[in-house]
Design a protein around this nucleic acid. Structure first.
Lengths: 209, 209
DNA sequence: TATTTTTATCACCAATTGGTGATATATTGT
DNA sequence: ACAATATATCACCAATTGGTGATAAAAATA
């Protein structure tokens, strides 16, 4: 059971490396073909390994997919910025930065889009866990920062953020799948995206008036 | 070729009725199992007819699904209200009513949710046509009402509406698939939904200040 | 080196899926 | 009643899919 290997030279057969190949294959297929393309045969072929290993290592397709989802660190892109930006403006600048960076991040990260979409279609436990992480992360922000600031209007502000976040999600995904415009705005063009960014800024500002 | 039948008694074999059975089957399966459940065998069995007819009447599964999508009159729920509500307030009350009724309508209409979701996943021509209808419908509103009102800020207002509509879509779909909360709000409860409605009203009001 | 364990492949299975040609049955027109 | 046509069923196929037992090959251990 000694897994230690001092040199960088790895053996030809390596369980951990193989598991990773399967996870990478899931990501690749998800990116190119979407959920419906996630078939065991296809995954195994993409990983360059035998499908039997999926059952040996992950207990089946579902286990593999769950592990892939768990491997996605959903909130890493936010936590970075959050650090110690707790200026005493009721979370205004923080929320604004967070929403704008989300708008950009989700647009660029097709895998994150797929996982978000997945959460609207299936009811996987591992997907629920992701959503739960988001909620817990948000709870800290709301309870510690915005709720005390908005007092009796705290819930309305939460609703505003909910609308903006989910609007951002939808528009980014829509822009990726469709070439069409949305409300006459080209969400793939810099100009169109700037309009959305302006609207986000504007609405946050107005919410603090 | 004489299709006229005076009495209510229909013949056992009726092409139009059979086609409708297939369309109904698609709706039923879409509602219960989602897109991934739309298999020719399953559709035929649900319709109580032979799958061969799907190929005879619709040219295949895709043709049937396209015809189902086309059969969905997406904007009927909006056009009703729109009639002649053109008060000269820059479309404020109209937009507000429209958004609130959408929030309610989409929540109750699971089929509409599925089709919206579909538009985020697949790139079907028939789905594009639906999106196009929405755009054309919106164009009339924007060009005739809000653009003249907001002048140089016209595009920002469009972006605001884009964010709110897509936020409404996402939240309604999310609420249906997940039991979890979003930003700490229970989107299935009357209380939670009222908060969202208040936020929508609030943001529209603020946009017109 | 010989043995044991881990890692990976292979051949094969049953069930599902999309698809079609041959055929049966009902309806219509003569 | 008869033929012609429209409607529907059936049996069957090939390809795909999820899944597994037997086995090979590499690595670790003795």
């Amino acid at each position: 059971m000694d897994m230690e290997q001092e040199t960088g030279v790895k053996s030809l057969r390596n369980k951990e490396k193989s598991k990773q190949k399967f996870l990478d294959a899931v990501e690749k297929i998800l990116h190119t073909k979407g959920f419906s393309g996630l078939k065991v045969n296809d995954i195994a072929h993409t990983a360059g390994l035998d499908k039997k290993l999926i059952y040996n290592y992950f207990g089946g397709k579902d286990g593999l997919i769950d592990e892939y989802i768990r491997s996605q660190d959903f909130w890493s892109n936010i936590k970075d910025n959050s650090a110690e930006t707790l200026v005493n403006d009721g979370g205004k600048t923080f929320c604004k930065t967070m929403l704008l960076s989300q708008f950009d991040y989700i647009f660029k990260n097709k895998n994150t889009q797929k996982i978000l979409l997945w959460g609207l279609i299936e009811n996987r436990k591992s997907l629920k866990k992701l959503a739960n992480d988001r909620e817990e992360n948000g709870a800290r922000l709301f309870e510690g920062l915005t709720d005390p600031y908005f007092k009796e209007n705290a819930k309305r502000y939460r609703a505003i953020i909910a609308l903006l976040i989910s609007g951002i999600y939808y528009l980014d995904i829509y822009a990726t799948t469709n070439d069409a415009t949305f409300c006459g705005l080209d969400l793939k063009s810099a100009a169109g995206r700037t309009e959305i960014e302006n609207a986000i800024s504007f609405l946050i500002d107005k919410s603090y008036e």
